[in-house]
Structure formats: structure tokens, C-alpha cells
Write a protein that binds this DNA or RNA. Structure first.
Lengths: 227, 227
DNA sequence: TTCTTAACTTTTCACTGTCAAGATTGACGA
DNA sequence: TCGTCAATCTTGACAGTGAAAAGTTAAGAA
């Protein structure tokens, strides 16, 4: 892995204390992640961009794991926002909602590939981090409610879903099927495994067709369970 | 990321030339990957274990990307073998085959977590590598044929599937749905995202139930398309 | 025998995270 | 107003890293 070109130190600050270093580091870290990728991500480069010494980040985040966990939280927040925005546009149209979700998830992975990679690396993150946990939960919520609507069931909280799932029939199964589909496609696409299927020009098209089909399957089955 | 304890150099070889360094490095690299993880993987440690200087690997693999690509190929070979072995046990039982595949895929991710992580990192690998490409293709083949059987269609080669997919109706859609399910679950589980669903004790059980359901959906739909 | 080339070593360089010790500062109580 | 104290940030050192360049060794072809 060839080392990238490094940024020069920022002009010296007037005051000794930065004032808002934590946020400055978070912003810097997101830029580094996007520009240099996860493999090229270093704490020292983040510090350099924030205009502080290489050891300054330690006081705020401990180590890279701490910093990355916060950025992962931001990532999940952004993902959730993207999902709900696209779902809102298709509100009421069940197949449309499922298609919109699939595309929004894929778009996030394409727009923030290095965030996406990092967000799904349990070994690089501190999953106990409250911000991260809450943000990931909100994404999960969005997907759960999507599936509940597909099944024509009232939206319920995650807690309810996960705790009394004995009474929820096969809701959990459908949540898993929907979630793994949306995530699996984005992941396999990002890591270039879907090239196996042929030219990659029309991956969006391909995703849409599969999403349509899966949405129909879920609705059919839900309807069957009615009687 | 704390640095691990390092192995001492191997006892000096009698001859200047190693004789089979390429393979020795591959073996060493797999061990390093398993012991230290992807984040702790270094070329120098591989060289140390193979008993050669830290620059020796360059001659055989160029850089880490070259070495990892070969190991990724081994990984896909192992995964394919695991899938086909489990499928063979359930031969004839369609739901059973799909369940077996899901479990086998998950088992691979659990048994070789760092391989799995590395195999799905387009930025760390050289996807042009012939061994890697062929091995990944063989895994894809296994999954494709599984879906074709689910649909009650004759097994065909990947090339045929991907080129004249206009004539294949929604085969591609089902392949994608099946593949993303199996992969998505394993990935989300490995990266601890499924904890959202509650206690992780019975993840295998959860996977089996969802797999059963999806298999049934795929078969129902295939049957519907018959008339 | 000599030439050539592949396989491997050595050295050096710029960079990394971690750690310990020191400098600077603002806030708060006396 | 003054001290002191804890939080914030800097400095310097250490062991380890990948890459590149130059040197060494062995083996096989001419």
C-alpha cells in the first residue's frame, strides 16, 4: 500500500486551546476517510488537518476506534435520513417503497463507500458506543417499519418487535429477508462481486427488478397468511 | 491499534534459496490473518514466519494486494467446497438444500472471519487475478445452481445465465434474492449488526427459519410462473 | 568458463500508533 | 485579586511498517 501525499500542518492557532477540537477532528476524519480510504486512514493525518499535534486526538477519542465509532454513528444517521426521505416520496405504494429503500441504501454505499466499509467492521468499532448504537438502531427501525407496511401490519417499535416475536409470527423472518436483501446487494455491489452477473452498467436496473419481485413475494405471502 | 507481539526470525536456512517460498508465504499469511486479523496483517510478519527477509515477498507477490488476492482465492475455494458438501447431504430436498447452503455460508464466515472480511474488500484485492476470479466464480456457480433447482429449472452454466438473461425471465432476480440473503445474513451477523434482533444465541435457528420461508417463497413463485 | 538472470538480503527513508513528560490555559474557590 | 488545579494540547522518543534501491548468491545457458 503506497503512502499518500501528506498535508502540511495548519497555520498555528492564536490560542493554545482549540475550542472545538472534537468536532474539528470528526470533520477532518470524514474527509480523510473519503479521500484516502479506510486503508489510508490515520489518526495523525486527522490531527494534521485539524491543525493540532499528533497526540491531541487521544484526549478526546482515545484511539482510532473511538474516533471511527463516532463517524460510524454519523454514517448511520445519514443512511437513515436517506432511507426515510426516499421512502416518503413513495409513501403508500408498497412496491415503490421497497424499491426506493433498496436504491437509497445502494446510493449511500456508492456515495460513502469508505464510510460504509468502516460502519460494517465490528473489529474497528466500539459497538458499545451509545451514539453508534442509537444510530444503527434508527436505521434498523426504518427497515423494520418498511417490512411491517409491506405485510400490512401496524408499525411497531423495535423493542416490541424483537422481544415478543413469538407473537409476531414470521415477521422476524421477513425483516431478515428484506434487510439482508437490501444490505447484501449494496455490499456485494460495492465490493465488485456482482460483476459475475455481467456488465455493471445497469446494476440499478437489476436491483429494481429484484426488489420489485421480492416486494411482491412478501406481499403475496402476507396476504396468504390473512385467511 | 496496539501492536502485537512479534515472532522471532526463523532459524537460518542452510541454502540461500528457500526453494518453495511462494507457498510458504501463503501458508504463513493465512496463519497471520487468523491470529492477528486483517487489521494486524503485515507483510513483514509473513516474511518472518516463512524465515526470510522482509523484502523477499516482493519478488513473488509484488505487494500485500498480490499476496492477499491469492489467499482470497483459497478462501473462495474453501467456501465453495463447504457449500457443495452441505448441499450434497440435503440433495433432493429443496428447502433442505437452501437451509444447508445458508448455514454453510454462515459457518464459513464464523470459521474464517478474517478471510471473509478480506475476501470482500475490492480495495485490498486484485480482482483481475485469475485464481481469485475463477474461485469466486465457482462460489457463484454453486449459488446459481441452487436457485435454479429451487425453481425446478435445469442447471446451466454461469455464462449462459448471465448472457442470455433476457430469455431467462426472472431467474436473475431470484439468483440475486437468494445470494443477497445468504451473504447478507452472514455479513451482518459477522459484523454484529443482527444483535439488534435480540440475543444472539439462536442466530443459526433464526437463519434457518428465514431460509425456510424464503425457499418456500421462491418455490411458490416458480410454480405460479408455470401456468 | 563466463554471462545472465532469478531469488533473496541489507540498508535507508518517510510514515505510523502509543506512551510519558511537559507546557499552556481557563475556571473556580479563597 | 490571587493561587491552584484539572483539562487541553505539545514534544519527543520508541518500535514497527511498506517501499525502494542497491548489494549478494546461486543456478543455468552460451
Amino acid at each position: 500500500m503506497p503512502y499518500p501525499i501528506y498535508t502540511k500542518a495548519m497555520p498555528k492557532r492564536s490560542s493554545y486551546h482549540h475550542g472545538d477540537l472534537a468536532n474539528a477532528l470528526l470533520d477532518a476524519a470524514e474527509t480523510v476517510l473519503q479521500e484516502r480510504g479506510l486503508a489510508g486512514f490515520t489518526l495523525r493525518e486527522c490531527a494534521r488537518r485539524a491543525g493540532v499535534s499528533h497526540s491531541a486526538p487521544k484526549h478526546h477519542f482515545g484511539d482510532a476506534q473511538g474516533l471511527l465509532s463516532e463517524i460510524a454513528a454519523r454514517g448511520f444517521q445519514r443512511l437513515t435520513a436517506g432511507l426515510s426521505a426516499e421512502i416518503a416520496k413513495a409513501k403508500g405504494d408498497l412496491v415503490g417503497e421497497f424499491r426506493a429503500t433498496s436504491i437509497a441504501y445502494l446510493n449511500f454505499a456508492e456515495e460513502y463507500p469508505e464510510h460504509f466499509r468502516m460502519m460494517l467492521r465490528a473489529d474497528l468499532l466500539c459497538l458499545d458506543n451509545a451514539n453508534l448504537f442509537a444510530a444503527a438502531q434508527s436505521t434498523f427501525n426504518e427497515l423494520t417499519n418498511l417490512i411491517l407496511r409491506q405485510r400490512g401490519e401496524p408499525e411497531i417499535g423495535v423493542q416490541a418487535t424483537s422481544t415478543n416475536h413469538e407473537h409476531a409470527g414470521n415477521v422476524i423472518d421477513d425483516i431478515i429477508i428484506g434487510w439482508t436483501f437490501v444490505h447484501g446487494f449494496a455490499h456485494l455491489h460495492l465490493e465488485k462481486q456482482l460483476q459475475m452477473l455481467g456488465n455493471a452498467d445497469d446494476q440499478q436496473e437489476r436491483l429494481l427488478r429484484a426488489a420489485t419481485r421480492l416486494s411482491e413475494l412478501l406481499q403475496i405471502q402476507a396476504h396468504k397468511a390473512d385467511h
